[in-house]
Design a binder for these strands. Sequence first.
DNA 1: TCGACTTTGTGCGTCCGTTCACAAGGGCTT
DNA 2: AAGCCCTTGTGAACGGACGCACAAAGTCGA
Lengths: 252, 252
Amino acid sequence: MSTSRVDRPLGRGRGIPEATVARLPLYHRSLMGFADRGVATVSSEELAAAAGVNSAKLRKDLSHLGSYGTRGVGYDVDYLVYQVARELGLTQDWPVVIVGVGNLGHALANYGGFTSRGFRIAALVDSDPARTGELVNGLAVQSLGRLEEIIDEADVSIAVVATPASAAQEVCDRLVAAGVTSILNFAPVPLQVPSGVDVRKVDLASELQILAFHELRKQMSSLAALPQLAAHPARPGHPAHPALAPRSEATG
Amino acid sequence: MSTSRVDRPLGRGRGIPEATVARLPLYHRSLMGFADRGVATVSSEELAAAAGVNSAKLRKDLSHLGSYGTRGVGYDVDYLVYQVARELGLTQDWPVVIVGVGNLGHALANYGGFTSRGFRIAALVDSDPARTGELVNGLAVQSLGRLEEIIDEADVSIAVVATPASAAQEVCDRLVAAGVTSILNFAPVPLQVPSGVDVRKVDLASELQILAFHELRKQMSSLAALPQLAAHPARPGHPAHPALAPRSEATG
DNA sequence: TCGACTTTGTGCGTCCGTTCACAAGGGCTT
DNA sequence: AAGCCCTTGTGAACGGACGCACAAAGTCGA
Ligand SMILES: NC(=O)c1ccc[n+]([C@@H]2O[C@H](COP(=O)([O-])OP(=O)(O)OC[C@H]3O[C@@H](n4cnc5c(N)ncnc54)[C@H](O)[C@@H]3O)[C@@H](O)[C@H]2O)c1
Ligand SMILES: NC(=O)c1ccc[n+]([C@@H]2O[C@H](COP(=O)([O-])OP(=O)(O)OC[C@H]3O[C@@H](n4cnc5c(N)ncnc54)[C@H](O)[C@@H]3O)[C@@H](O)[C@H]2O)c1
C-alpha cells in the first residue's frame, strides 16, 4: 500500500504485482496452518477459504511465482510453503532494529510472532537515558548514540520506528544514512526517504477513523429520516461546531 | 484495504471512493498541524506535501466532500478541518472496547493518540482472571463474561481484537452478536463476519515480510552475478532446504 | 474597472487489480 | 488404454485509482 515506488529494478522476468506480494505472507501463514495439521495437499479453493480471499485471485497470485500446482489435485503443501517462503526471503533471518522502546516498542519487542517468521530483533534503541540498559525480552536497550554502530555491526537493513512523531523523521534520516533500506513506521508522519528505500506505515488511529467513517454511514441509514440538527457552518469563518478542539499531541 | 464489502447503502450521492476515505485521516492530521501552527489557509500543493501525496490526488479527494476551496487562494484550514472531521464522524466520541489486554492491548490502552482523535476507550476486557481488576491507564480490566453487558451499556459499535489468534474468531462472533459492527483486528487470522460488519486488520508480521521481499530483490541486484547456491528442491517431495521449520505459535 | 496571476476542480487516458469463465492438463477408475 | 472428472492456469472483460494537463473561477494590484 505505502511502499515507496521503486524503479522496478529487475527487467520484468520477476515482476510480481505489489498486490500479490502483500498477500503472500497471508498465504504463507495459512499454508503453515495446513502443514501443522498434517495436510499434504490443498486445492486453491481450500487455501483461498483459509486465507479469506477469492480462489481465482489466489491461483493468479501463485501463478506469478511459477506453476507449482497439479491439475486435478491441488498444491503440495510443503513444496508450496517452501516456494512462498523463498519468494518472501524467509529462508534467511533478517536482523531488525527497533527504535523507540515505549509502549509500542515494548509490545513489539515482547512479541514472539516476529522471531518465528524469519525476523530476529537485533537491537533495541531509545534516546531516553533512563531506558538505556533496561532488559526487554532478554535484550538490553541501547543508547541512541550507538545507532549507526549497531546497524553496521549487525548488518541491519530493516528497522522499526516507534518513536514519537516529532522524532520520527530525524531517526529515519539517521537510519537511512547508516544503511537501512526498509522501514516500518508507526509514527503518524509521512517519512521522507530517498528512492531505493522502502517505507511501510502502520497508522492505528487512521484505521479506527476509517471504521468510524463507515460506522457513521450505517448509523445514518438506520436513523434514516430525521430533522436536520444543525445547518452547515458559515463558509469562511470559524466552524460553528464546538467539538474537535483538542490539540493533537504530535502532528508532524 | 480489507474493509468487508458493504452493500453500498446510500444511493450514489454520498459515494466517496474507499481509497479516498483511507486518506482522509491523513489529511485531517496534516490539517491539524497547520491549524496548530496558526496557518489560516493552505494550497493543495502545501497540504499534499505535508500529507505526502500528489496534489492532484488531494484535490480530487477533497472534491468528493464538496467544493470547499477558493480558486487562486486555497483552502481555509479551520473550515476544511471541520469538513473532514465531520465526514469521518470525528465530531462525536466513539466508545471503543479493547478485547485482550496483553502486550499489545496494554500499549493501545496507554496510547493517548486515540483519545485525542475522537475515540474513547470504554472498556478493557480480558479472559485471564489474573488480569481482571488490573488498572491500565486508569481503567480496570474487566472479565470476558461481562463483554455483552459492557457493549450494551456503553453502546459500543467499534471493538479492537488483541487476543491470540486462536481466540480471535470466537471473540469476534461474540462481539458481533452483541451488536458491534466495526472491528479492528490485530490477530493474524482472517475474521469471518456477516455482511454489514466491517473488519480492518493490522498484520505487523506481514508488513515486515513485505519489506523483506523487496529487501531481497535489492540484495539480489547488488550481488548480481554469483553462482547458484543450491538447486531447486525436488518437486513433490519435501523441500531440500533445512530452514523454516519453526512451528507458528498460532496460525489458523 | 480590468487584466494578470494563482489555484481549484475535473475530463481523460493509462495502468493496475479483480473476477469470470473456460480450455488445458493430469490423475484415477474401469 | 481410454475416457471421465477434477482442478489448475489464464485470456479477457471490467472497474477503480492515479496523475496529467487545462479550463474555470476567483483574487489582487493597478
Ligand atoms: N502505543 C500505541 O498503541 C500507538 C498507537 C498508534 C500509534 N502509535 C505511535 O507509535 C509511536 C510510539 O508510541 P508509544 O505509545 O510507544 O510512545 P511512547 O512515548 O510510549 O514511546 C516512545 C519512545 O521513544 C523514545 N524516543 C523519543 N525520541 C527518540 C529518539 N529520537 N530516538 C529514539 N527513541 C526516542 C522515548 O524515549 C520513548 O521511550 C508514536 O509515534 C505513536 O504516535 C502508538
Ligand atoms: N505484541 C505485538 O507486538 C504483536 C505484533 C503483531 C501481532 N500481534 C498479535 O496481536 C495479538 C495480541 O498480541 P499480544 O502480544 O498482546 O499477546 P498476549 O499474549 O500478550 O496478550 C493476549 C491477551 O489476550 C488475552 N486473551 C486470551 N484469550 C482471550 C479471550 N478469549 N478473550 C479475551 N482475552 C483473551 C490473554 O489473557 C492475554 O492477556 C496476537 O494475536 C498477536 O499475534 C501482536
